[in-house]
């Protein structure tokens, strides 16, 4: 390229392209998060350094319990989503061919183009006391009175799994698609059964897809706000809700910043651990 263009205009072009990228990253991503960091260590009254807001987090059981609960439930939701999505992704990638494959895959994707709010609303109509499932149970005689299915941990889990499904199915389908049928056939040809072909050939091949699916689903669950609040009700105890409360309701920005950074730390740690265990790189997994 440099043989075709003079070096100086080439350099100029690079700087011109570099400028918007840097403005975006510095002004909207890096500085705001540094600001959070500064906030979380600043005592607003004395304008001095303090550990107080982190101390508060560890001393108040409600805070750290919510934190742990959010992490554990997010991990569970991730595992559950993987288990549910894998057979579906396998079917789409390996059992279907041509047109029917495209249609079934699109059927998987289209629900997720609809707003999360609408999907959650749908679950509320299904699950609430006066909802569809409760009515069905009474009508079929399986239950004597209205059943409230909302506002439990299981409901939150259901909502999280539902909402993240796409982000698991898509990476799984694309890695499984890249597994040539002949590998599976070779596995059987050499005497393998369903189970060990799955375990020794299919799953090892699908690791990159599994890892990127899990990371995205985990991040989405951890950072979710709508689903726990709407499906879990008042007792949902989700950590993002705590952050919102500190910032918007209590106007305690310092405490909120500390919470936010703790959440970021947790998610980075788990993503890092996930990548380390599976030997994948961040750029490859995300890109």
């Amino acid at each position: 390229m440099s043989s075709l263009r003079t070096t100086s205009t080439f350099k100029l072009g690079m700087w011109l392209l570099l400028a918007p990228l840097c403005l975006w990253l510095v002004l909207l991503i890096i500085l705001p998060h540094l600001e959070l960091l500064v906030f979380s260590f600043t005592d607003p009254e004395k304008d001095s350094f303090t550990f107080g807001f982190y101390q508060e987090f560890f001393l108040e059981p409600l805070y750290w319990r919510t934190f742990v609960r959010t992490a554990v439930m997010s991990i569970m939701a991730t595992i559950l989503t993987l288990l549910i999505a894998f057979p579906v992704a396998f079917y789409i990638a390996k059992m279907l061919k041509g047109r029917s494959k495209g249609i079934v895959f699109a059927m998987c994707l289209i629900p997720f183009w609809v707003s999360e709010l609408v999907r959650t609303f749908g679950w509320m109509i299904l699950l609430r006391e006066s909802g569809v499932i409760s009515n069905f149970l009474q009508w079929s005689g399986l239950s004597d009175g209205p059943v409230e299915l909302l506002y439990t941990d299981a409901t939150i889990m259901l909502g999280l799994v539902y909402t993240s499904m796409l982000f698991m199915v898509v990476p799984l389908v694309s890695t499984l698609d890249s597994l040539d049928d002949s590998y599976i056939e070779a596995g059987y040809d050499l005497g393998g059964t369903n189970w060990n072909v799955l375990r020794e050939i299919v799953i090892p091949h699908a690791v990159p897809g599994i890892v990127s699916g899990c990371i995205i689903v985990f991040m989405l669950s951890l950072g979710n706000y709508l689903t726990p609040v709407l499906l879990g009700g008042k007792d949902s105890l989700w950590f993002t809700e705590q952050i919102y409360t500190q910032f918007i309701t209590r106007f305690n920005w310092e405490q909120g910043s500390a919470f936010g950074l703790l959440l970021l730390l947790l998610s980075s740690l788990i993503v890092w651990a996930g990548l380390k265990i599976s030997g994948q790189s961040f750029a490859k997994t995300m890109g």
């Binding site: 040539d180 002949s182 590998y183 056939e185 070779a186 596995g187 059987y188 040809d189 050499l190 005497g191 393998g192 059964t193 020794e200 050939i201 090892p204």
Partner: peptide
Amino acid sequence: PPNKRPVNMVFQHLALF
């Protein structure tokens, strides 16, 4: 079934895992 036949195959693109 293929996994029970006394037959093995060298695939076109070998399919080495």
